[in-house]
Simulated assay, not measured.
Amino acid sequence: MTDSTLAADPRSIPAGDRTLRILTTSDLAGLGIALADVVATVEGACRTLAAGGSDNPRKLTVKPADGHSVAYAMLGRDGSRDVVAVKTSYKHGLDKDRGSQHYYTTLTLYDDVTGLPVAMMDCGRIGSLRTPAVSALLARECAPPGARSALVIGTGTQGRLALPFLLTTLPDLERLMLSGTHPEGIAAVRAELRAHFPDRDVELVTDLRAAAADADVLVATAGGHTTAAVGADWLRPGALSVLVGHGLAPSTLHRADRVVATSEAQMKVTGTDMADAAGGFPAVDAEFPAVLAGTATGRGTARERVFAYNSGLVVTDIALGHRFARLALDQRLGTQVALWR
């Protein structure tokens, strides 16, 4: 079964059948996939985008004046799979602690060859995998030569797989550091690391400034309530700072020697907390899909301080979501719903 014929496969959706396959969190939870497989899937999606074969428009955002919630909608087309998809993301309770927040995200896939739906699924696991995979690819392409140390800030969903993915693309990392305050999150980070790399452990740091000064690669994944804010003058020459959530001060962007973004347009939508006093951003030197394709430079010299903004690309959600849909449908998981009857 090829990617482009998924919807027409008799094991998934028979030809002419307009029912929708629903894949729940539980359906997807037990599906095994190697970290290297995730990295390869995400990298392929970025390369296809860079070659002009896919479409990844800027995401739409709505947010009330008091900031208690935020919602995103992302439409895209994966040209290598001939799949169109819509992703929605809604978080409520941004003014509350993490335990009181609600988060829902879905991905709906359509086969653009047959014109039939593929599946609608919870996108939580897909996002928890594709984002650290992109961070790891950014590290592979933009880290200083001979990088040996990495610091992850935050122990939430994105922080928990950051180190295993970094070790997948940078296996020579020696010192692994973690800055976090939630005991359950710290335990989860350690558990994920040992699940994938049983012989490795992470060092919990309390002096963030000293840890940042020793890190070749920093990945900031903390939530919006964090007090962590690594400044530009904390960083060693050559350091790579990757922003996923929070944990870096705006100076790391504005004083960087080189700025790389998965999407410059999306950085200006979702990264407003990194803008300067006038609401401005420095120019982006390279978008990451072009770096992967070799048509743009992710790092110029060994001593450049590089800032990378990982805002996520819906084409990576589509590629990985489609991969999960194939795995799930091969195992006859999910529920068919006659949504359009």
Score class of each variant (00 low, 15 high):
A228V: 09
E192F: 03
S179T: 03
A215N: 08
A239R: 04
A188W: 15
V242H: 05
E192D: 13
V205T: 14
A261E: 02
A191C: 14
A210K: 09
L208S: 14
V202D: 11
V219W: 01
V230T: 01
A232L: 04
W234S: 14
A232R: 03
D257K: 07
V217S: 04
G238K: 08
G245P: 10
A229H: 03
L218Q: 03
A261N: 01
A187R: 09
H225V: 12
A210L: 06
Q266L: 01
M267N: 09
A222I: 08
V219I: 07
T262G: 00
A187T: 15
L204C: 01
T181Q: 08
T206N: 09
L218A: 11
A220I: 10
A261T: 00
A220E: 07
Q266N: 14
R200T: 10
P237F: 02
A191Y: 14
A229C: 01
S263C: 06
E203M: 12
A256N: 02
V230W: 09
L240T: 09
L253M: 04
G245Q: 11
M267Y: 00
T252L: 04
L235N: 07
A222E: 06
P183I: 13
A232V: 05
P183D: 10
L218Y: 06
T227S: 07
P198I: 13
V202E: 13
G238E: 11
V219F: 03
G247M: 04
G223T: 11
A210P: 01
V205Q: 11
H254P: 03
E203L: 12
A210C: 09
V244T: 07
S251K: 04
G180Q: 05
V259P: 05
P183F: 09
L243H: 06
G245T: 13
V189F: 06
V219N: 03
A213K: 08
